[in-house]
Computed example of a mutant assay.
Amino acid sequence: MIEDEAVGARIAQIRKTRGLTQHQLAQKAHVGRTYLARVESGDTSASTVWLAQVAQALGVDSARLSGPQEDPDQLHQLVPTIRRALASTDLVDDDLEPLPIDQLRQQVVQLGEWRRATKYDKIGATLPDLVDQLLTAGREHGETAYALLADTYRAGNTLAHKLGYSDLSLTAMDRMEWAADRSGDPLLVATSHYLRAAALARIGAGKQALKLLDKTMIDVEPLIQADRDAAAVWTALHMRAGTIAATLADASTSQQHLAEAAKVAAQVGDRVVYETQVGPTNVKLHQIAAEVDLMQPGKALKTAGTVVFSDGIAAERQTYFHLDVARAHLLNRKPDEAIEELYTSRVLAPQHFRASSTVKNTIRAAASQQRRAHDGLRALANYAGIED
């Protein structure tokens, strides 16, 4: 059905070139051998972070495994815009007169709403000018402007990593940490570490990501009893650590972190704190992702059956849920059920669907499991930019 070479075939080819057995590669990448075998055969799909671990072990860039990310809506034309927004922090036009700080705050709030709704084209159109405005506003408003600037750089990070540009993602994280440090807010700094850990994991530095998260959790923990927002950030750090540990096939560490997150999540509630979705529902979503990466599809689907989305859960989080459920169905060799989840994901977040390498890999795996690809799967593949 699909002309693009499947990710599993790329892994197998490079592995054999390196003279490695599946067992040797699995050990070197700290992933499960059985999962590796199923990905290589095209029988199931893998997360971006899992692929990064394997790419690092093979000594190649993860883009070589996931392949080109063609996009029918030309979202990749946003890349020059992202690069301009991240280019520097000290070359803003001296004659620029920024908008009043309250208006800039409203624009940053809107940017966050677009990010959670996966409206990447709107972010790209707004990002460069807003960055320039906030850099200039920082001279007058100091910490207030820098806090807003950190959230704006976060939106740049989202665009970069959704479109598969790891170098730009790391640059955006440098900029976000720079602004967070100047905001005077330790929780914003901790949130920047939460995001940096994800960026590190996406380039195969999962162990370093866990070290960063552990250090940050130690810094935040003394604040959680008196500060509900600190408890929310602390929960998010544990959720991130739980999913990263799962991609390293460390079930015990993953479960410990997710259990810690669940303990505090109830008092936090389902809401957005520091531009991050937190609460009991999001803990379950991270648990599902971890269970899939640990090759526990039965547990993942059981957890998924308990998820009820409230109106406040972002489309971005919901689409990840349906993608992870699709991956669980593929592990159970039920491609039709996986395809249904892919359809729901497409409806919820069409731009994310078109840009995501995980979507493409899941479609390819579903095609591999179906004896005859039906029109629905062909339509999904074409929508995601995979040539028929």
Results as ranks from 00 to 15, higher is better:
residue 12 A to G: 12
residue 13 Q to Y: 06
residue 18 R to K: 15
residue 22 Q to L: 05
residue 29 A to G: 07
residue 30 H to V: 09
residue 31 V to T: 13
residue 36 L to K: 10
residue 36 L to P: 06
residue 37 A to E: 13
residue 38 R to F: 09
residue 38 R to N: 13
residue 49 V to G: 00
residue 54 V to Q: 03
residue 58 L to M: 04
residue 59 G to I: 11
residue 60 V to G: 02
residue 62 S to M: 08
residue 65 L to C: 02
residue 65 L to Q: 02
residue 66 S to L: 10
residue 67 G to V: 10
residue 71 D to P: 05
residue 72 P to H: 10
residue 74 Q to A: 10
residue 77 Q to W: 07
residue 78 L to N: 07
residue 82 I to F: 05
residue 82 I to D: 10
residue 82 I to Y: 06
residue 84 R to W: 12
residue 86 L to G: 05
residue 89 T to A: 14
residue 93 D to A: 12
residue 98 P to I: 03
residue 102 D to S: 12
residue 102 D to F: 02
residue 103 Q to E: 15
residue 105 R to P: 08
residue 106 Q to N: 11
residue 107 Q to E: 12
residue 112 G to D: 15
residue 113 E to A: 07
residue 119 K to I: 01
residue 125 A to E: 13
residue 128 P to I: 05
residue 130 L to W: 04
residue 131 V to L: 01
residue 131 V to K: 00
residue 132 D to T: 03
residue 137 A to C: 01
residue 140 E to R: 11
residue 144 T to G: 00
residue 149 L to K: 01
residue 150 A to Y: 01
residue 153 Y to Q: 08
residue 153 Y to M: 08
residue 159 L to R: 06
residue 163 L to P: 03
residue 166 S to Y: 01
residue 169 S to P: 00
residue 172 A to C: 09
residue 177 E to N: 06
residue 178 W to K: 02
residue 178 W to D: 09
residue 184 G to D: 01
residue 188 L to V: 08
residue 191 T to L: 09
residue 194 Y to F: 14
residue 200 L to Y: 12
residue 209 A to V: 06
residue 212 L to V: 15
residue 213 L to F: 05
residue 215 K to G: 14
residue 217 M to D: 07
residue 218 I to P: 00
residue 219 D to H: 07
residue 227 D to Q: 08
residue 230 A to G: 03
residue 235 T to R: 00
residue 237 L to M: 04
residue 239 M to H: 03
residue 239 M to I: 00
residue 241 A to F: 04
residue 250 D to N: 14
residue 253 T to D: 04
residue 264 V to F: 12
residue 269 G to F: 11
residue 270 D to F: 04
residue 272 V to Y: 07
residue 275 E to H: 14
residue 285 L to G: 04
residue 288 I to S: 05
residue 288 I to Q: 06
residue 292 V to D: 01
residue 303 T to H: 13
residue 304 A to C: 01
residue 312 G to Y: 10
residue 315 A to M: 03
residue 315 A to K: 10
residue 317 R to C: 02
residue 318 Q to A: 10
residue 324 D to I: 01
residue 327 R to P: 09
residue 329 H to K: 08
residue 331 L to F: 10
residue 333 R to T: 14
residue 334 K to Y: 03
residue 335 P to D: 08
residue 337 E to V: 00
residue 339 I to Y: 03
residue 347 V to K: 11
residue 347 V to S: 13
residue 349 A to I: 05
residue 350 P to E: 08
residue 354 R to W: 09
residue 355 A to T: 05
residue 357 S to M: 09
residue 361 N to I: 00
residue 366 A to W: 05
residue 371 R to L: 09
residue 372 R to S: 14
residue 375 D to F: 12
residue 377 L to V: 07
residue 380 L to Y: 06
residue 381 A to R: 07
residue 381 A to T: 02
residue 385 G to L: 08
